[in-house]
Design a protein around this nucleic acid. Structure first.
Length: 545
RNA sequence: GCGCCUGUAGCUCAGCUGGAUAGAGCAUCUGCCUUCUAAGCAGAGGGUCCGGGGUUCAAGUCCCUGCAGGCGUGCCA
């Protein structure tokens, strides 16, 4: 919200003066909040309540003293009132919100950008699904969240690299190859023996049909790499359909081949953070906040899966980023302490690595829950959902809940092109605005730069302007918490304010050119902010519905 | 057993460092289309914020405790 700083410094000055008079030395830094209710003003503070105890004065008296000190210091307030039990409520004059409209139109797609991140470099790793099967709906949420976070951080002044890390080696790939081989044999009549740990999904059956008899004479390695290539191509295609792209792809195999895994184990050994026991190599992770020590190299000398992961994150640190962000599934949340432990043991600052848990997605068709089991290979793929509900709607739904909250995704609701669907509600504002602009053009009216905005006096208009002014703060808030969800809520709020306005007032009014001009400016500003918000979520705004 | 998360309206969820009469959408009911897109708007009803203690001028929010649900706790990834 604009003018928070100004109000805050006025408040601080007043507090200092009061401190001189009463001998109070310490006061809480004045916290201003935007009240829920408009009758409590545009900004509100509770400092007087906080000061009451240490000063021994009644809070109302303190509040009144503060108000007396600042009431006439600034021309921006229409009034400042004291409300029991001791709140101070600030009301701004409507005209101070006018400049925001011109600013939005001037800045266009840059409105909302800030230097909050001070150009810090962020490495954001997400999705990172292994090429053992098609992307699931859960991966879809990771993709939507990761991509939105990247966009938000960039808007807030960070430099972001989006990275995808995948395991293309070892036991997992061998199992994949064996599973595919079993499916191939099955196609020629044999019984498929995939085993407990194998991959049971239908997709391998389909892949098996594409293998020629000639190729099948080859070994398991052939089947592994065939499956990997085909599945990974499918993953990339799904991501591109979802319009989520990555700047960088890291393969686990490379970490082995470059010696990075051995090197990092050696480093830990030199640092004295590992020990041998029962033939295995253990990391002293319990010294660094983990519940227990962890094996990083098995008795058979094979590294455990954490070893390449340590090497990978070690490299992330050495690549010189200011902040590392990992998006994990909930099944990995017990994994973060040991990763942090390993990195701390290597002398890295664990505070630089932020791990975000992206909670599970449950699919519904109306009331009916769709049961899924990745292990049995029964799941709805991301592709199926994209084809059924469309990428834009899916993105919005994936981002509607807080990242670390469980998400219920109702496919019926997502498909419905009705008032129940929040995506259309927001898009509708953009389309409506575009439509108004079109009619204005047809009537040869343009939203002139010199429009006199003081014609915007309706309560609804002021409310929209206040909402528009909040957008940059919403973005920095999201960046600070690394959480895209508030953007969806903001867009819905702004959309509501606009639809309400639209239904009560006519923008284009041939009898009043000046009013029309001013209102058109407001509409352009709303359209711009809706577009910027949707773009942050990776959803293209539409001109027409 | 230990650790983490969740519990707010019939349903799905917001609720920012503790603040004012706990909010929104959907669902239900009632109104609004000769006017820039009705995929819209306005209004109404609907609550033991899981229970119980505590801290505070003030608790959905913080502390303790109990209950319910989910997850984690591999020389699997």
């Amino acid at each position: 919200m604009i003018l928070v700083k100004e109000t805050s410094s006025l408040l601080k000055e007043a507090l200092v003066k009061i401190g001189e008079k009463t001998g109070m030395r310490q006061f809480p830094s004045p916290y201003l909040e935007i009240p829920h209710e408009t009758r409590h003003g545009d900004l509100s503070t509770n400092v007087a309540l906080q000061l009451a105890k240490q000063s021994g004065l009644p809070p109302l008296k303190i509040a009144e003293d503060i108000v007396k000190l600042i009431a006439f210091r600034s021309p921006v307030f229409s009034r400042i009132e004291v409300a029991p039990p001791g709140f101070i409520n600030f009301f701004f004059k409507p005209e101070i919100f006018y400049p925001i409209i011109n600013r939005i139109i001037r800045e266009g797609s840059r409105y909302g950008c800030s230097n909050f991140g001070e150009g810090k470099r962020v490495l954001l790793e997400f999705v990172s699904a292994n090429p053992t099967g098609p992307l699931t709906v859960a991966h879809g949420r990771h993709a939507a969240v990761g991509d939105a976070i990247a966009r938000i951080l960039r808007m807030a002044g960070y430099t972001v690299v989006k990275e995808y890390y995948y395991n293309d080696s070892g036991r997992q790939m061998e199992l994949l190859g064996r599973s595919l081989y079993a499916r191939y044999k099955e196609a020629s009549g044999a019984k498929a023996d995939i085993g407990e740990d194998g991959y049971h999904g239908e997709y391998l059956r389909e892949l098996a049909r594409e293998i020629t008899n000639d190729e099948a004479k080859k070994d398991i390695d052939f089947f592994s790499s065939f499956a990997e290539k085909r599945i990974f191509a499918g993953i990339k295609q799904d991501l591109s359909e979802f319009r989520v792209d990555f700047d960088s792809w890291i393969k686990e195999k490379d970490l082995y081949e470059s010696g990075a895994v051995d090197r990092v184990i050696e480093e830990l050994r030199k640092a004295g953070e590992v020990y041998e026991e029962e033939g295995a190599l253990w990391l002293r992770s319990s010294l660094f906040g983990d519940e227990k020590d962890r094996v990083i190299r098995r008795r058979n000398k094979e590294p455990t899966y954490i070893a390449p992961d340590i090497a990978y994150h070690h490299q992330k640190y050495e690549r010189g980023f200011d902040l590392l962000i990992d998006l994990f599934g909930p099944d990995h949340h017990g994994y973060s302490p040991r990763l942090w432990a390993a990195l701390t043991a290597l002398g890295h600052d664990r505070g630089k690595l932020k791990i975000i848990i992206v909670q599970l997605v449950s699919l519904y068709r109306g009331k009916e829950k769709i049961s899924m089991s990745t292990r049995k290979g029964e799941f709805i793929t991301l592709r199926q959902v994209l084809h059924e509900v469309g990428g834009d709607v899916a993105r919005f739904f994936f981002l509607m809940r807080k990242t670390d909250s469980h998400l219920n995704f109702d496919i019926e609701l997502a498909k419905s092109e009705s008032l129940e669907n929040p995506v259309y509600y927001v898009q509708y504002v953009h389309a409506r605005s575009a439509s108004i602009m079109k009619v204005a053009r047809e009537n040869a009216i343009a939203p002139g730069k010199d429009a006199d905005l003081s014609f915007l006096r309706e309560e609804e208009e002021i409310a929209i302007m206040k909402k528009l002014a909040q957008f940059p703060d919403v973005i920095t808030g999201c960046a600070k918490n690394v959480e895209p969800q508030p953007v969806t809520g903001y867009l819905q709020d702004l959309a509501k304010a606009f639809h309400n306005y639209y239904n009560h007032f006519r923008v284009i009014n041939p009898d009043n050119q000046q009013l029309t001009q001013a209102r058109l400016r407001l509409v352009v500003a709303v359209k711009t902010v809706i577009a910027n918000g949707l773009t942050l979520l990776g959803i293209p705004p539409c001109e027409k519905m």
